[in-house]
Structures are given as structure tokens and as C-alpha cells.
Simulated assay, not measured.
Amino acid sequence: MKNINWKVRFSNPVFLAQLVLSVLAPITLYFGVTYEELNTWGKLGQVLFDAVRNPYVLSGVAVSVYNAVNDPTTAGVIKDSIRAQGYEKPKKDVR
């Protein structure tokens, strides 16, 4: 996936939050767990372990991560525009 500027994406806190939530949301929804219930590392680890053992949950996570990574404004699948591939840091909207 060299057509994605991973360096810039991972330096953007919004993308990181989106990626984390794209993994956690399908898992917590499937198991009916609220974020308040995940108050220890043991509970979080058990939920993640149960998720990895469940193909349905893994497919939900895969679709969710795909939606977080894919840029619908660019033609093609999981690809940044040529201009975005050249960014050194997330572009700020200047008006």
C-alpha cells in the first residue's frame, strides 16, 4: 500500500482516534460491552481475545478499518491523491 502517505496519516491525531475507534466500536457493539465496563487491562484483554477468536467480529473490524483508511474523494481503492502522497504533515485548510 505504497499509495498511502502513512507517515502523515499517523501524525494526525484525528486519524489515530478514527483508527482506534474503528477497531473498538465493532468489538464492543458485538459483545454488548460499554467503554465504562472496560476499566481494567484484564477485561480489555479478554474482550480483544474473544474478538480475535470470532470471524464475524473480525470481519466487522476489517470493514470498519477499511472505511477509516479509504479516502472516498480519490479514485481507486485505499489510495491517496498524488498531492496527498507528497505531504510532509497533515495539510491545514487555509482560506
Rank of each mutant, 00 (worst) to 15 (best):
K2G: 11
N3K: 12
N3R: 13
V8A: 05
F10V: 15
S11F: 03
P13C: 07
V14E: 09
F15G: 02
A17D: 12
Q18C: 14
V20C: 10
S22G: 10
S22R: 02
V23A: 15
L24R: 01
A25T: 14
A25I: 11
Y30N: 07
Y30R: 06
F31V: 05
G32H: 08
T34I: 08
Y35C: 10
Y35N: 06
T40F: 07
W41Y: 14
G42S: 10
G42Q: 07
L44Y: 03
G45A: 10
Q46V: 14
Q46R: 12
V47E: 05
F49V: 08
D50R: 04
V57K: 00
S59I: 02
S59W: 01
V63H: 03
Y66D: 06
N67I: 04
A68T: 13
D71K: 01
P72G: 01
V77K: 08
V77N: 09
I78H: 01
S81V: 01
A84Y: 04
Q85T: 03
Q85E: 14
G86H: 13
Y87I: 07
Y87D: 15
Y87Q: 10
E88Y: 11
K89D: 08
K89T: 13
K91F: 04
K91C: 09
K92I: 05
K92N: 14
D93N: 15
D93M: 10
V94Q: 11
V94I: 14
R95Q: 06
